[in-house]
Design a protein around this nucleic acid. Structure first.
Lengths: 113, 113
DNA sequence: GTAATATATCGATAATCATCAATACAAGCC
DNA sequence: GGCTTGTATTGATGATTATCGATATATTAC
């Protein structure tokens, strides 16, 4: 409907003009949000948030109750979103939560109660 | 793999024990995250974040470049997640971003650059 | 009453996704 | 070389989702 419509209710004012988010910024932000929008990934991030040292994929597999390929897939999703950092020692991969993601998790959980 | 495995690398310590997030808390949090994980919904939230007064669905339809049913569906998703508040005047619905969601959007966008 | 308007819902479709078993890859040990 | 172990990838499948056009509902104006 057009802003000059006479039927527009008084409390439903014409919004202030707002520029849309740049597509690339929106894409990155949605990717981060999507990476946190699965229960298993949220649990992984929560586990990592409770650690000071990086955690092996093997320990996450043991801690979480899903198959190893599924954990691997979730870890890749989190890494692609830039939510976790990955390191390697031999065949071992260890994962660390990025500081920005730690802050985001805190805010998300604070809003979830 | 088991924590007592001798091959475990030195920098890949056994993680501190962490209780999994309660299922209901995780469910709410993932629902919020999921509601922000779509580009159009993120734009809607961004638009609402720039307003002091509630915004009509009709204005969002005009502002965003998707069909009215799609906007309606997205608004329902955001309302179900508790990210926005909904009010009505007659047939009009107006939407307001909740404060907790405003903070979350800020943190999300801050991490997206 | 009818007409117009704002929004929600329905039904369908194409796309994305979470999951697993099986397999492949990579590194260390014998 | 072969064996073992940690992890990633592949392929398949069932579930979820974003989107639209068409339609229904609700409210106001006439």
């Amino acid at each position: 409907m057009s802003p000059e419509n006479a039927r527009r209710p008084a409390n439903c004012c014409v919004p202030k003009p707002v520029r849309a988010l740049a597509a690339d910024v929106a894409a990155v932000a949605t990717q981060i949000a999507k990476s946190l929008s699965d229960p298993n990934r949220l649990q992984i991030v929560h586990l990592l948030a409770g650690q000071t040292l990086p955690v092996c994929a093997c320990d996450i597999v043991e801690w979480l109750d899903v198959s190893q390929p599924t954990v691997s897939h979730h870890l890749k999703t989190l890494a692609d979103a830039g939510v976790v950092d990955v390191g390697r020692i031999g065949t071992w991969r260890f994962y660390r939560l990025k500081d920005s993601a730690r802050a985001l998790l805190q805010t998300l959980l604070a809003g979830a109660r």
